[in-house]
Design a protein around this nucleic acid. Structure first.
Length: 562
DNA sequence: ATGCTATGCATCC
DNA sequence: TGGATGCCCTAGCA
């Protein structure tokens, strides 16, 4: 066959070895680089290289033409250049110095030396001192600002895993929603279209609805006039209305009534919110259009309106909590836009907030509705302090690692609905941190009025990234979706009283206990290093209030390096 | 232990 | 403008 005949006429192979590093051989990966010759038969060449590695620098192959030179010099796997290497060194990731900083995206330094990676001021860009002469802004500064209590209420950070449902979903979690009145009910949607209803106090009381949607559940909202029913928007192009008591679901709208007509015609619904004043559900699709659905007649109210760049995905919708006629949208055209629903037509936005990348989410603040928080794929949280002020540029930009990754649910920073000062925000972090030898991805609590990192919440068991987070409307509880798992966090004191009282209060579902124990070695989990995690790992995360921020460098000695 | 892959945006021409 | 291509810290399964 062909390989044989080729072999006969195979040219001379020269293996060029790495000269500047002695410990190059053995277990470390070695990148193979062809410098000339035919690119085809790469399989054969790899064989030659591995054999050539032990001893002979030149391997003769019968009669040849021009010799093939194979370089065994170590190259960076990111930029393919020699002299440095990127990748994990233990639990710490080393950036490629040839690329812009992975965190702030600016050239000239790496994540390790990024000025935004500072212990107590992680991700902070100082708030620009704006001296606007806008009249409304003036009124706000003079008359409204003084009435806002200057002292912030002390918020409590849920920092202890109370219970977790391992592999409750069979695909990654994409959305979470707490029940508005029943304290212990959490809804979760996944990439497969399944919707889970979980009573996280009676942890085994759970229900998974697999017949509501056929793919990604992008957003869920409870019906404001009947909180036994919930709306969900999905990439299958439908908005569902499900009765949680009976499990009966109906479809308010189907954008793909004729089924699959090719990718250019398949419509997906992403952003969704309810407007109780109008009795409508708002949903937006991947082509830039907004739909209004009457919840009583289950029909479309009016025509679809183009609210973002034609053909671009609208990923988020939010009605202002105080003035429901004011709508906030965001999407893949790098904009968040403010609309007045009384005068809603293409191009009629009140304001366009520009971003450098896709905007994953945009939310009004939960109490006054006066602030805006956005999460964008340029690794920045943006805050506008007053929708009545100058919206030309954000009041603050906070550099925070929540990179876009096609395999993860997009990160969305969420307000704490209980914080009257509207400054506490929760958001998962993408970049891992070396916590005593383990690379973990914390969930960050950030004070967006200062940009300060208030707490970073981790658990040695949770090694995956946690992009989906939601804070409870009344209790000090955080719900997290990480890959296929759900987690409920509480302040340490409270979690102590929760049943069952196993060591870590982790509840397993189905066969996952075996896998989990195989991975983590049962009770004695971490074997990292002397001061490592293990049961002592609990100490890692016992910082519950903002007053402990300063202590963080002591509790995380490694962070001092940055 | 290693390899594969689902998958979304940016960039290029 | 649109199709092809490539991609730095994924997660889980074969």
């Amino acid at each position: 066959m062909a390989p044989q005949t080729r072999r006969m006429a195979f040219p001379k192979v020269l293996v060029e070895r790495d000269t500047d590093s002695e410990e190059s051989s053995s277990d470390d990966e070695e990148e193979v680089e062809e410098e000339e010759g035919p690119q085809s038969e790469s399989e054969e060449e790899k064989v030659v290289v591995t054999k050539g590695g032990n001893g002979a620098t030149v391997e003769e192959k019968k009669k040849g033409k021009a010799p093939i030179t194979i370089s065994l010099k170590k190259v960076c796997k990111v930029c393919k250049k020699p002299g440095h290497e990127a990748g994990f060194k233990g639990a710490t990731y080393i950036d490629c110095p040839m690329k812009p900083c992975f965190l702030c995206k600016m050239p000239g330094h790496t994540t390790m030396t990024c000025p935004h990676r500072v212990t107590t001021e992680y991700g902070v860009v100082p708030a620009p001192h704006k001296n606007t002469h806008n009249r409304l802004d003036f009124v706000f500064q003079r008359q409204l600002r003084p009435r806002i209590p200057p002292i912030k209420a002390a918020y409590v950070i849920p920092d202890q895993v109370c219970c977790a449902a391992i592999r409750y979903h069979s695909r990654r979690v994409t959305s979470l929603e707490f029940h508005p009145t029943k304290n212990n009910i959490l809804l979760s949607g996944d990439k497969k279209g399944q919707v889970g209803v979980w009573d996280f106090v009676k942890v085994h009381e759970k229900m998974v609805y697999g017949n509501i949607h056929t793919c990604i559940v992008n957003n869920m909202r409870f019906n404001p006039i009947n909180d036994d029913t919930v709306f969900a928007a999905s990439s299958d192009g439908t908005v569902s209305c499900t009765d949680l008591e009976t499990g009966i679901s109906s479809s308010l709208m189907n954008l793909n009534p004729d089924g699959w007509q090719g990718p250019n015609n398949w419509r997906m619904l992403y952003g969704m919110d309810t407007n109780s004043e109008r009795g409508v559900v708002l949903a937006a699709d991947n082509f830039g259009f907004l739909y209004m659905l009457d919840t009583r007649s289950n029909r479309k109210a009016g025509e679809a309106i183009l609210i973002h760049k034609k053909g671009s995905k609208v990923v988020g919708l939010h009605c202002n909590p105080v003035q429901p006629e004011i709508l906030l949208s965001c999407g893949n055209d790098h904009f968040a836009r403010i609309w007045d629903m009384r005068r809603l037509e293409a191009g009629s936005s009140l304001c366009d907030l520009s971003h450098r990348r896709v905007v994953n989410s945009a939310y009004f603040s939960p109490v006054t509705g006066n602030k805006i928080l956005t999460t964008a794929q340029d690794n920045r949280l943006r805050i506008w302090d007053s929708i009545f002020g100058d919206l030309g540029s954000p009041s603050r930009e906070i550099v925070h690692s929540h990179d876009f990754n096609r395999h993860l649910t997009p990160f969305r920073a969420e307000w704490d609905p209980k914080d009257p000062s509207e400054s506490l925000v929760v958001v998962g972090r993408y970049i891992s941190e070396n916590y005593h030898g383990a690379a973990l991805h914390p969930i960050d609590f950030i004070d967006v009025s200062t940009g300060q990192l208030v707490a970073e919440v981790i658990d040695p068991h949770i090694t995956t990234i946690t992009p989906v987070n939601k804070l409870h409307p009344r209790d000090d509880i955080l719900a997290s979706g990480s890959s296929r798992s759900l987690f409920i966090w509480m302040p340490k004191e409270k979690s102590e009283s929760v049943e069952p009282k196993d060591e870590r209060k982790i509840i397993f579902c189905g066969t996952d206990e075996k896998k989990f124990k195989r991975k983590f070695g049962g009770e004695s989990d971490d074997d990292s290093d002397d001061d490592g995690c293990g049961s002592k790992g609990k100490n890692l995360k016992s910082k519950s209030t903002k007053s402990k921020v300063k202590k963080k460098s002591a509790e995380f000695p490694h962070k001092g390096k940055y």
